[in-house]
């Protein structure tokens, strides 16, 4: 862990819970892990290592679960899917395992806001030299969430290049 940016797990989880408006610390933890897993699918190993250095050790496994090479076709929509895999978006569960969230189709803004909370928390903890490299590898839309101040280094997707 980065000595100058030491992260207390409980503090981090609580900050995410408060900023994202989640009902429980467990949801906040799952959201945090989901976003890290999504990052593992779009970032090269070097960038994952940089993030590993500023997250709690017990969350580092999330950044090791991705493919050997990042998937260039994962755009912001697919990224959100990986990030939100285990977190309800909005609406009341209907008590069955199958139907959880009847309002999810209208929840894009809420989902993005929650992902943004985690990305911003990571951004604050990253060493400045690592930031540009990570931002440059993120899908369009996600890079802006992580660093609202700059969109100049957005990754050019295969889609955008072609």
């Amino acid at each position: 862990m980065n000595e100058g940016n030491a992260v207390n797990d409980e503090d981090l989880v609580q900050a995410i819970q408060n900023r994202a408006g989640l009902r429980s610390a467990d949801e906040a933890r799952r959201l945090f892990e989901g976003v890290l897993q999504a990052l593992a699918y779009v970032l090269p190993a070097e960038q994952c290592d940089a993030i590993c250095a500023c997250v709690p050790e017990d969350a580092a496994w999330c950044l090791r679960c991705g493919p050997a090479t990042p998937d260039p076709l994962i755009d912001s929509d697919v990224f959100v899917g990986w990030a939100m895999a285990s977190v309800d978006a909005t609406g009341a569960p209907d008590e069955t395992l199958g139907g959880a969230d009847p309002l999810a189709a209208l929840a894009a803004a809420e989902v993005q806001a929650r992902v943004r909370v985690v990305l911003e928390a990571l951004w604050e903890r990253l060493e400045p030299p690592s930031r540009a490299g990570i931002e440059g590898c993120l899908p369009g839309g996600i890079a802006e969430m992580m660093n609202p101040g700059s969109s100049a280094t957005r990754r050019e997707h295969d889609e955008g290049d072609r």
Binding site: V78, G81, Q112
Partner: peptide, 22 residues
């Protein structure tokens, strides 16, 4: 613009299909 839920798996299939044809 697609009206799928945020994070829907259809987005990945959609991206893959367009990429394949191109």
């Amino acid at each position: 613009k697609p009206s799928w839920c945020p994070g829907c798996g259809d987005y990945g299939i959609f991206a893959a299909l367009k990429h394949s044809l191109a």
